[in-house]
Amino acid sequence: CGPAPVRPGMPGSVRLAGLERWRLEGRVAVQTADDAWQASLSWDHDGRQDRLWISGPLNQGTVSIVLQDDLILVNEGNGNESISRDPEGLLKEKLGFSIPLPSLRYWVLGVAAPGDAGEEMEFYPDGRLKHFKQAEWSLDYERYRDWDQFTLPQKVSIQGRSLKLKLFADEWTVGNPPS
């Protein structure tokens, strides 16, 4: 069979973090101080740009988010678009919670975001990250799964700032597998 899966926490995880292109299809459960909801999530990462689609039941109430560097575009459909250089501010306004998307883009891969190091790192016996803290956020990886030659998180809980997100990945598609 193919090369051994690259696992977060293993030497290959640098390659995981450096992946240029991937797509995540899954679902998210949101809990804030005053609201809670579930939605489906599509996330396309391509180099410096991230495109996210969040849809409610029966694909209603869809919101699209495009982030590139510090510029964010949130489109709620019916010509209702907002652009800002304060991504977290606009997310808070439109979705009712804010989370640093540039960090989240690493967390969903099962790796700490570059910059300040992760603390309290705990690993599964085979080297996959189980828990860590970074800035004011706490990450708990409940389940991993192999997709092609990559082992990626299938279920992760992210908590911080009176927010709890639970993310379940139904499908990971990694754009350019390691050469």
Binding site: R27, V28, A29, Q31, A36, W37, Q38, G56, P57, L58, N59, Q60, G61, K155, K166, F168
Partner: peptide, 20 residues
């Protein structure tokens, strides 16, 4: 709304329930 994998249930009043 109950999602088994996400282990979360949210109940919204009829008027606020997106998708209903």
């Amino acid at each position: 709304f109950y999602d088994v994998d996400l282990e979360q249930v949210t109940a919204k009043r009829l008027g606020q329930a997106v998708g209903s």
